[in-house]
Write a protein that binds this DNA or RNA. Structure first.
Lengths: 122, 122
DNA sequence: AGATGTGTATTACTCACTTAGTACACCTCT
DNA sequence: AGAGGTGTACTAAGTGAGTAATACACATCT
């Protein structure tokens, strides 16, 4: 895994964002075992407590579950996974709509520009 | 002006964002006089030094200009204003495209959803 | 039994940001 | 001339989120 953290946002939030993205995209599958706190911290060159904080929040959100003294696993609950995807999409759209709102531009003008940006991704 | 600051991001950045939005939307016009540091601080119930920091950064970006001992003014340089609008739009699109990328969804499916969100704004 | 690997808890430190207080030079209006 | 309004600069202190160091309990594997 290769990740680059920006210096402004808290690392633990960026870790959560990174992991959510992997779940949403399907690269982390339901029931799959998560890397241990220490392992991920080592990979990312950050403090294990920072990973712990990220995992804790994700556990509160039911995105992962943990049995005592065992590695954490991705949830298998479809409701939780669907909610994650829905929230991900809705937040993306809400942020976008709010950002372009002050601009004097229509959706029709926007679509070709978006299409171009999307193409460049592939 | 009514603004609500979130507690996570630095206030001075939120002030900049707020003012940029006003410029982009045309509610602050080129050449228009800005409220004084002390005035804006009073309006927002924040410290004048925080406003000063926001203004300083905006001056570095040439978005405002200040003659000695006079109130600051919005730039009248079309190049600077166009750059602001272009960056605003590009950043919005880049963020959106990046957020959407892990989702398995096409632009065709997206457009109606965006249209709905845009309608609700008005 | 011992070593190593889990998750978890507690405590302390760090640093960016914010606030506060003061001061100074200059302009404008009364 | 005087009062009050600009922008600017500097120092000091406070605040709180984020991060780091350390230790503990338990499981697994050799």
């Amino acid at each position: 895994m290769s990740v680059s953290f920006n210096k402004r946002d808290p690392i633990y939030l960026q870790v959560i964002q990174h992991l959510k993205r992997l779940i949403v995209s399907g690269k982390l599958r339901p029931g799959e075992e998560m890397p241990s706190r220490r392992q991920l911290a080592n990979d990312f060159k950050i403090n294990p407590n920072t990973v712990q904080r990220a995992y804790s929040e994700m556990e509160e959100q039911r995105l992962i579950y943990t049995e005592p003294n065992r590695p954490s696993h991705i949830t298998e609950d479809p409701a939780v996974l669907n909610q994650l995807k829905n929230e991900w999409l809705n937040k993306a759209m809400a942020t976008f709509v709010s950002a372009i709102e002050p601009l004097d531009i229509s959706l029709d003008e926007l679509v070709p520009l978006l299409e171009e940006k999307l193409q460049k991704r592939k």
